[in-house]
Design a protein around this nucleic acid. Structure first.
Lengths: 237, 237
DNA sequence: CCTCTGTGTTTTGTTGACAAAAGCAAGGTG
DNA sequence: CACCTTGCTTTTGTCAACAAAACACAGAGG
């Protein structure tokens, strides 16, 4: 069909949105900076400081700041500046309570709605995670990223737009803020992988109820793991 | 203590944030306009049009637009303008699935954490709702507002900051978008009130598990109510 | 010695103008 | 006759200057 070549080319060019807009850029930069801890929680940061740091002007920055604030990563008092939100340990645990019910729902809906290809992809993901854990013995980084990947796939697989949006856009970023200073405990990666496998099995069998139950228990275990580390005094907040 | 009079006055003056900032103002205006349906879903709206409509300039407007977009009430394509999000009936029902699990959690935590005063306030709220329903026979508006009030109190009573933020800041506004064109069916206000009463009873008895169960069933019933109306073809989307 | 007040400075909020990209329409071409 | 191209218009994205509010410091008074 040579007659649609022009149209296809136009679409292909459009399909590569290299740098969207300056505000989006700023938003991404700020978000990753906050998540990676480059901007310390509770730190009061000036606008001009951010401008020269990320090489942009105040207009787009301000728009990005608004978005971050509305997502709860920043708090802003009028005429007093913005500061990175500092989440207490209690609030972190509350985050996991929310994840428990929301990801439980996601797992159930994923079991009902994922395509067979998506389920296969999920299993492949787990295989690669297993290989990573074997290879990088103890390096929790891969596990954390892999865990994120797993939950990401299930959230999108739920076919619930708003649910995925809330999980991927709000909760995960806040949780990941702590992943960077919260090393997963020794034996947990293997245990987590086993839990992931059972969840995927339930999804593959289209057993939504079981998938929900297993997912809730999985996140519950992760929460208790953190709780335990807090009691051991291994955390510095 | 006359020596602290000045301080108290300052705090009291501060405690009345008359008009915060222009961007906040714009955000509120836009949000209520969207919720009330003054800006039709799917409608493409220009910035200058909004500026003269709400009497503000493009700077603050843009910031507000960014916030709205990040909350999912608007969609924005670079250089192509913004348009109000149009939620399909399927997505509305998905919203109720999310509410089911999240408000279930909220009810459970509220049962565990609300003060006795808050529980008393909740019961008083229900009494006033009952009076309203009796008086304004069939006027669903009061019921909708009352229902919102009820769920609002439980969300804040959960003492789960992020949970309350997500419910009050994200979900409720989207749900309320439809409340304005979705009249509750005839007998439902009374039934809903009864369900509310039982939830409050469970909370008063500090039975978190029961409160969660009842809340989930309550929202489930509301969802099925909508589902039924859709099947009856009473909705125009 | 502490507290309150007043001024100066910094930082935020806002505004208007400028530049760039997308949509639209008309004309040319296969 | 249909399609692509090209230029114009509108609208969005960006920038830099202006105004206002809050913080900090210093000085005076109790």
């Amino acid at each position: 069909m040579p007659e649609i070549t022009g149209l296809l080319l136009t679409k292909m060019i459009e399909a590569v949105p290299q740098t969207q807009t300056r505000a989006d850029e700023a938003f991404d930069c700020l978000q990753t900076a906050i998540v990676k801890g480059e901007l310390a929680p509770g730190e009061k940061i000036g606008e001009l400081e951010l401008c020269q740091r990320f090489q942009l002007t105040r207009g787009p920055l301000r728009e990005a700041l608004g978005r971050l604030e509305s997502r709860g990563l920043l708090v802003r008092r009028p005429h007093a500046g913005v500061k990175v939100v500092s989440v207490s340990t209690e609030e972190l645990l509350e985050l996991y309570r929310i994840r428990e019910v929301m990801e439980g729902l996601a797992a159930r809906q994923a079991a009902e709605r994922m395509t067979d290809e998506e389920v296969a992809g999920l299993q492949a993901t787990l295989d690669s995670h297993e290989a990573m854990i074997e290879k990088a013995q103890g390096q929790a980084y891969y596990q954390a990223e892999g865990d994120y990947d797993f939950h990401h796939r299930i959230a999108t697989g739920s076919r619930n737009t708003k649910l995925a949006q809330m999980l991927l856009g709000d909760l995960y970023y806040m949780v990941r803020m702590y992943r960077y200073r919260l090393s997963t405990s020794a034996g947990r990666p293997h245990r987590a992988l086993g839990e992931h496998r059972r969840i995927v099995e339930a999804i593959a069998q289209r057993d939504g109820e079981l998938a929900e139950f297993l997912m809730k228990r999985h996140i519950n275990a992760a929460r208790r793991n953190i709780e335990q580390k807090i009691e051991e005094g291994l955390l510095s907040f």
